[in-house]
């Protein structure tokens, strides 16, 4: 499979502080990649480095074009990437059409008619004379996306495009991205810290911590089998349960002998116990005391003390705090690498 974006040994230092260290990333052509990570992990810096907006060392290829290597650096304006900034970065004095006319490459087939087509497809054609100050949050998002897409860039970079909008708009933006971008042949690298958004959109998820890609893979794989404790803590809710005696698909834990996938170091490690891996039963199982019960809409999140860990299970009905419930593990738990500290 051809690569839409390939980054090799990328390092960025800002004001003498290393932000990205020898980072490698490969995104297949036309794929939708999402970078997930905590604040300060270097997600936005990675996008900016790919766009050429921050100086960096390493090799960057966009499609077949090497835009940066040890010998040459293509300036940002010639990389041909589309970029949707976190702040949207609209020009307050230009109209909607003015934005697109400024950016439009008139040598592309279709010429100015591309603007009308794009405005129509994004549903903002009637707003073409308005300025950003006269647009709603969702309309501004569409304009930022239209500006990034008008020249059919080979690579679209999205820097937390939904971070500053309310939940209803997030869904709207996600829908636009799904309809207008995903599967249309454009390679997309999308930075977010919203896991739902990431899993909903991504072909490939890249989990990033402290300037490195910790794990890369399809969303199901990243969710189901986190490669490290830090990835496990970051993705989804759940508890890392210390286990010992790992072998032949089973391990010993505070919940008793449980089915597991994978092998820990020297037979010990952590099992990722997600709420869906626990079932509340009336008979049998392990008794635990309820510490909290939080209503989440479709279900209640029940938090209970198990040894030193606080584990979470889902319940269809409210459970009294302080009462005792019984839990049974369901399915095989993923073993996450790492020694149990004394």
């Amino acid at each position: 499979m051809k690569d839409g974006l390939s980054v090799v040994g990328l390092s960025v230092s800002l004001q003498g502080r290393p932000v990205l260290t020898q980072l490698d990333l490969v995104l297949p052509l036309g794929a939708y990649g999402v970078i997930l990570g905590p604040s300060g992990a270097g997600k936005s810096t990675l996008l900016r480095a790919v766009a050429g907006l921050v100086p960096s060392q390493g090799v960057i290829r966009i499609g077949r074009t090497t835009v940066q290597d040890g010998s040459a650096i293509v300036p940002p304006e010639r990389r041909g990437v589309g970029f949707v900034f976190q702040s949207l970065a609209l020009w307050p004095h230009l109209s909607v059409r003015g934005h697109l006319e400024f950016v439009l490459d008139r040598t592309l087939p279709g010429g100015p008619a591309r603007i009308d087509t794009l405005l129509r497809s994004l549903g903002i054609q009637s707003l073409e004379r308005r300025r950003p100050g006269e647009l709603s949050g969702g309309e501004r998002q569409r304009l930022a996306l239209a500006r990034a897409l008008v020249n059919d860039p080979p690579l679209l970079l999205l820097d937390e495009p939904t971070s500053s909008v309310d939940p209803s708009l997030k869904a709207e933006v996600a829908a636009i991205l799904t309809e207008q971008v995903r599967g249309k042949g454009t390679t997309v690298l999308h930075v977010t810290h919203d896991q739902r958004e990431a899993f909903a959109l991504a072909d490939q998820v890249y989990v990033m911590t402290q300037g490195r890609i910790e794990q890369a893979g399809p969303p199901e794989q990243v969710y189901g089998a986190p490669a490290s404790r830090s990835v496990a803590k970051l993705i989804g809710s759940g508890t890392l349960l210390a286990v010992t005696g790992i072998g032949q698909g089973f391990a010993d834990s505070a919940l008793g002998r449980i089915p597991v996938l994978g092998a820990g170091t020297a037979g010990a490690g952590y099992a990722l116990l997600r709420p869906e891996n626990l079932e509340i039963v009336k008979v049998g199982g392990v008794p635990v005391v309820v510490k909290a019960c939080i209503f989440l809409g479709p279900h209640y999140a029940v938090k209970a003390q198990l040894g030193e860990a606080v584990i979470e299970a889902h319940s269809s009905s409210r459970v009294e705090v302080g009462s005792e419930i019984r839990l049974v593990p369901r399915g095989a738990l993923a073993i996450v690498e790492g020694r149990i500290s004394s």
Binding site: E77, F83, F85, A89, R147
Partner: peptide
Amino acid sequence: ALAAAQLSG
């Protein structure tokens, strides 16, 4: 927004 202008080519 200045960076966006630069990226516009």
